[in-house]
């Protein structure tokens, strides 16, 4: 197993390097560069200003050389300078990453906590009222556009009831600490988490239900029951453990999508996450910010896939890595 993990980590590093180069090259191919962006907002820029800035930003160098400069800077711990915000990348990305992780993982955790039991029960009560209602709600959750659902929640809870804020991350200027700070944070994160949870829950309910129905039809479940095992043991030990395998795959993929998935929710709720920052940095040719975000996403996808592969071995003893 350890050999497998070390080998995978080595290949993960190689893949990370290749993908980072590809994404860097693709960004360089996008229309306009940071200097051309500046020209749009500063029509007084002269040809000599353009040449000066291209040389200063290294945009006059070939792509591979620019990539090498970026890579060596990054390995030295210098993430670079944001052309949009005019500050070092670390100054803007750190807090936002934490905020996005907090939102995404809370929503993901809640989604799993609610969706898995609902999916299991719906599968065990296949064809009953509970199953139909669970299916209906799952479809509804999947179909609700997050921007619309978000605005509806804001209208209800912020405008009409005035019990939750209409957006933000924390109360500005608040010097609350301890529990009061936590309560303040909760107040702002509640609605974004609801929107993000509802949209994700639907997928997990459907997958859990489908996987459980499939597993419950297997011969080994019939054998377990024939052996006289308690239903609880049959469901949770024999069936659920096997049904977890596809769920782990979906979960690993979902983790890689934490930035992209949060963009709309973050934007609607003016939540200080990294999603919008990544979007803006790509649109605004803010290379250094975009590259940090790309690489975290790529690393997470690769790492979570490794975790998923390792989990399969624990979930299914037939799977072994040599």
């Amino acid at each position: 197993m350890w050999n497998f993990i070390i080998r995978r980590l080595f290949f993960t590093t190689i893949v990370l390097l290749i993908i980072s180069f590809v994404s860097f090259a693709l960004m360089a191919l996008m229309p306009g560069d940071p200097v051309e962006e500046l020209m749009m907002s500063n029509p007084s820029m002269r040809a000599e200003d353009v040449a000066r800035l291209k040389a200063l930003y290294g945009l006059d160098l070939p792509v591979y050389e620019r990539y090498w400069n970026w890579l060596t800077d990054t390995l030295r711990g210098d993430l670079g300078y944001s052309r949009t915000y005019k500050v070092p990348v670390t100054d803007i990305i750190g807090d936002r990453l934490i905020n996005t992780f907090l939102l995404s993982f809370t929503a993901l955790g809640l989604a799993l906590l609610l969706a898995v039991p609902i999916g299991v029960i719906a599968a065990l009560r296949n064809g009953t009222k509970f199953d139909y209602i669970a299916n209906l709600l799952a479809f509804a959750g999947q179909s609700l556009p997050p921007f619309w659902f978000g605005i509806m929640l804001i209208m209800i809870f912020a405008e009409w009831l005035q019990v939750l804020p209409a957006g933000g991350t924390t109360t500005i200027g608040s010097d609350a600490t301890g529990l009061a700070a936590l309560a303040d944070r909760l107040k702002y994160i509640t609605l974004p988490v609801v929107v993000f949870t509802v949209s994700q829950m639907a997928v997990y309910v459907r997958y859990t239900r489908g996987a459980m129905i499939e597993v419950m039809r297997q011969d080994y479940i019939r054998t377990a029951r024939a052996k006289g095992l308690a239903e609880k043991r049959v469901v949770f030990v024999h069936a659920f453990r096997n049904a977890l395998i596809p769920l782990v795959t979906i979960f690993a993929i979902a983790l890689g999508n934490v930035f992209g998935g949060a963009i709309i929710t973050e934007q609607v709720f003016a939540y200080q996450g990294v999603g919008k920052l990544v979007f803006d940095s790509i649109i605004g040719n803010d290379f250094r910010v975009a590259m940090v975000a790309f690489n975290i996403t790529i690393a997470m996808v690769l790492f979570m896939n490794l975790v998923a592969d390792v989990s399969y071995a624990f979930l299914d003893p037939r799977i072994a890595y040599k």
């Binding site: 912020a158 500005i172 609607v268 709720f269």
Partner: peptide
Amino acid sequence: LLIRVIPNSGTLESNLVSGN
């Protein structure tokens, strides 16, 4: 004085109406 960035115009309107 406080200047607040609220990127979504719908949310911006809700913030005005709700007094934020």
